[in-house]
Computed example of a mutant assay.
Amino acid sequence: MKQNFTVRQGALDGVEVFLRVAQHRSFRKAAAELGVTPSAISQTVRVLEARIGAALFIRNSRSVGLTEAGEQFFARARPAFEELVAASEVARGLGQRPAGLLRLSAPRAVIPTLLELVTSFCKAYPEVEVELAASKEVTDLAAEGFDAAIRQGHLVAPDMVAVPMTPPFRLIVVGSPGYFAGFSPPAHPNDLRQHACLRWRRSNGALALWSFNDEDQPLEIAVSGPLIASDFPTVLGAALEGLGLAQVPEPLAAVGLRAGELIEVLEAYAPVRPGVFLCYPGRRQVMPKLRAFIDHMKNRTAGDGKVRVKAGAKR
Rank of each mutant, 00 (worst) to 15 (best):
P288T: 08
F146W: 02
E127W: 09
C197R: 03
L278T: 10
I41E: 05
A134G: 04
R201Y: 02
A134C: 05
E82I: 02
E116T: 01
F74C: 05
K136G: 06
F146K: 01
Q285E: 08
A11C: 11
V286D: 03
W200Q: 12
S230Y: 15
F74S: 09
L101F: 05
E241A: 15
A143R: 11
R20F: 04
S176G: 05
P186I: 09
L207M: 04
E71N: 13
A253L: 07
R59V: 07
N60F: 03
A75H: 15
A238T: 00
A206G: 11
A50T: 13
G305H: 01
H188D: 11
T113Q: 06
F293V: 02
A239W: 08
P158Y: 00
D216A: 14
E127A: 03
V223D: 08
T166S: 09
Y280S: 08
A259R: 11
G100V: 01
A292S: 08
V174I: 02
F183H: 07
Q43G: 06
A106V: 11
L101Q: 15
N213R: 13
E71S: 07
S63V: 09
G237F: 05
P98C: 10
A196F: 14
V173I: 06
R199G: 05
L19C: 02
K136E: 15
L266T: 12
V17P: 12
R151H: 11
K29H: 15
I111C: 06
V128I: 01
L155M: 05
G153A: 06
L290P: 03
A148K: 06
S61A: 14
A149I: 13
V7S: 01
A313Y: 01
E264R: 03
L34N: 01
P177T: 06
P288N: 07
H24T: 13
Q96K: 05
G93P: 01
N190Y: 10
A55G: 11
P288H: 07
Q217Y: 13
G178F: 13
E129K: 14
R25A: 07
R28T: 13
R20S: 07
F81W: 15
L171C: 12
G10D: 00
P112W: 00
V161K: 02
V248R: 08
V7M: 05
Q43A: 01
M165D: 12
L155I: 12
I41H: 10
R51K: 06
S88A: 15
S39Y: 15
V110R: 00
K2G: 10
L192G: 04
V163D: 14
G282T: 03
N204C: 01
A75E: 14
K2Y: 12
A124C: 02
T6I: 14
